[in-house]
Design a protein around this nucleic acid. Structure first.
Length: 425
DNA sequence: TCTGGGGTCCTAGGACCC
DNA sequence: TCTGGGGTCCTAGGACCC
């Protein structure tokens, strides 16, 4: 399928492409413009925590004070996960340390997040959205893309956006921003304009006035590493990228350069992925309460993480072809090693064996480790894995053991059973 | 009491093969 | 003997997102 952005500013000099997109599908020239909404919950974790507190009889609405949802400083994960508008006005940023946040905002109040409750609020939101279209991509716990193209009836996209926004506010008690556009990129950029509780459009003809004027740092997928490079090229605004030579951007930044150029020109033909996709990799990592300088201690952590990861892997009924171990030293040097397996497996013992090998490869005696991570990659469905391997007696036995452990965890809770490393392995 | 945890995708270099 | 070049697979590291 080829989609031409005919009314896009860069084509505007060609009058023959008037104000519509041409979707070339299966040989039929068919005039169709995609109708996309992006829903973004305002200060999601903080809003949701505020609602839960009010529901529990607390009087204070933490949305109205200088507050953040933060990690646990005693566990060395003290960063800002979400902020109230008042905290934002004091300059508090997501991702910075609570220490830094308090310097900017001395009266800052810090609250803990409850991830389990967030899932529920996210599902409530999803249920409302499903009444409008079934083409919904759950981009993250607090963001969705909606493809409304075949679901508008006699209504307009903008009306739907306001209706959805207001219904969520009235029925669920939190606010969202809605971006209205003809592709995902522009809808996402639009929902990021002024907040909270707003609907913004970003149609092609609005790109110069609404998007090109923004600083480059606002462009989706343009991160902190690319920023200084663009600055050196005297690029300041998104419009500056749009006006760069396309081939020069590719030459300087490769695929990423092409993407930046296309995004800055509002070009994005990606689909709304509304079908649930299987994970490509599964990982767990932990920042240790104290730096560890002993391999034996690290192996214990590695086992716990491996058990978590393989448990999740088996829940998906998948097997892994690659095992990866990540370490972060106390001075924040990251490293990772991975290994391809001879055959795909979900077996805890086997994956732990490889993870231990990788740790041994990487770990230099005397270094202190802050973070350990285990992940599995190149996942395949279990029933695609060679049947012969399951018929091997020792594999069968191991698989049985995993099954028993999983069932206990399902029944009595995840922490009910933990393998004592020394005896089991 | 300084810096999370879960992901996806890309790149570059080396090994190996023809 | 003065050394190609294309392709694939594997690995380490990095960029970016929420």
């Amino acid at each position: 399928m080829y989609v031409y952005f005919a009314n896009h500013p860069i084509y505007s000099k060609f009058d023959i492409y008037k104000p519509v997109f041409y979707n070339y599908i299966g040989g039929n020239m068919d005039i169709k413009q995609r109708q996309i909404l992006h829903i973004d919950v305002n200060n999601a974790f903080l809003s949701w925590t505020a609602i839960d507190r009010l529901a529990n009889g607390e009087k204070l609405d933490i949305r109205n004070i200088e507050a953040v949802i933060g990690g646990d400083e005693t566990k060395r994960s003290g960063i800002v996960l979400a902020k109230s508008m008042k905290a934002k006005r004091k300059g508090v940023c997501t991702g910075e340390t609570l220490y830094q946040a308090r310097l900017k905002c001395p009266n800052l109040q810090v609250f803990k997040g409850e991830y389990k409750n967030y899932r529920k609020h996210s599902n409530d939101l999803y249920k409302i959205l499903l009444e409008y279209t079934d083409k919904i991509e759950r981009y993250s716990i607090d963001e969705c893309f909606l493809d409304m193209t075949d679901y508008l009836g006699n209504d307009t996209l903008i009306n739907k956006a306001y209706e959805i926004k207001d219904r969520i506010k009235n029925e669920l008690g939190f606010t969202v921003n809605v971006g209205v556009a003809h592709n995902k990129l522009l809808a996402k950029m639009a929902s990021d304009f002024t907040k909270p509780d707003k609907v913004h459009t970003l149609f092609e003809e609005e790109i110069p006035s609404k998007m090109w004027t923004l600083p480059v740092s606002e462009l989706f997928m343009l991160g902190r590493k690319t920023l200084p490079k663009l600055y050196n090229m005297r690029i300041r605004t998104i419009g500056d990228i749009a006006k760069q030579d396309r081939d020069l951007m590719i030459k300087k930044f490769g695929k990423h350069g092409l993407m930046m150029w296309e995004y800055s020109n509002g070009i994005d033909n990606s689909e709304v992925h509304y079908q649930k996709e299987k994970p490509k990799g599964i990982g767990n990592s932990v920042t240790l309460p104290m730096d560890i300088g002993s391999k034996e201690k690290l192996e214990e952590v590695l086992l716990t993480l491996t058990e978590q990861v393989t448990y999740r892997l088996r829940k998906y009924n998948m097997c892994a072809n690659v095992v990866n171990v990540q370490l972060r030293t106390k001075d924040f040097k990251d490293s990772s090693h991975q290994k391809k397996l001879l055959y795909a497996t979900s077996n805890t013992k086997e994956i732990y064996r490889v993870a231990k090998e990788l740790l041994n490869e990487m770990y230099k005696k005397g270094t202190f480790i802050r973070l350990v991570g285990v992940r599995v990659d190149n996942l395949v469905d279990k029933d695609e894995v060679q049947l012969s391997l399951f018929n091997d007696e020792s594999n069968k036995k191991q698989e049985k053991l995993d099954e028993v452990v999983d069932k206990l965890k399902d029944k009595y809770g995840y922490t009910s059973i933990t393998r004592a490393r020394k005896t089991s392995f």
